[in-house]
């Protein structure tokens, strides 16, 4: 049997304790910044796989013209959107 000295045993216990401690207890929870939240929304929304969608395109200023509007469904790789414009 190999012997582990006290100093090394202390180091080993420290490392084991660190490994077994959930990171959330060691590291303060970080608040997602607005930029991170917006960037992450792309993958989070795509992970939802499907959704209904409404869209509208037009000019903001006069003459206010609605060029296209529609609604449909989307699976984020293909979508069926009946609309008119």
């Amino acid at each position: 049997m190999r012997h582990v000295g006290a100093g090394r045993l202390g180091l080993l216990l420290f490392l084991l304790a660190g490994c077994s401690t959930p990171a959330t207890q060691e590291t303060p929870a970080t608040q997602e910044t607005p930029a991170e939240a917006v960037a992450a929304a792309a993958s989070k929304t795509a992970e939802a796989k499907t959704a209904r969608v409404f869209f509208s395109t037009g000019q903001r200023e006069a003459p206010k013209t609605k060029l296209a509007t529609g609604r449909g469904v989307v699976d984020f790789s293909r979508q069926r959107v009946p609309g008119h414009g």
């Binding site: 929304t45 959704a51 209904r52 969608v53 409404f54 395109t57 037009g58 000019q59 903001r60 060029l67």
Partner: peptide, 13 residues
């Protein structure tokens, strides 16, 4: 200026 609005709802439909 061309303004486009897109809304998603009923996720998982």
């Amino acid at each position: 200026e061309l303004v486009t609005t897109v809304e998603f709802y009923d996720f998982g439909t």
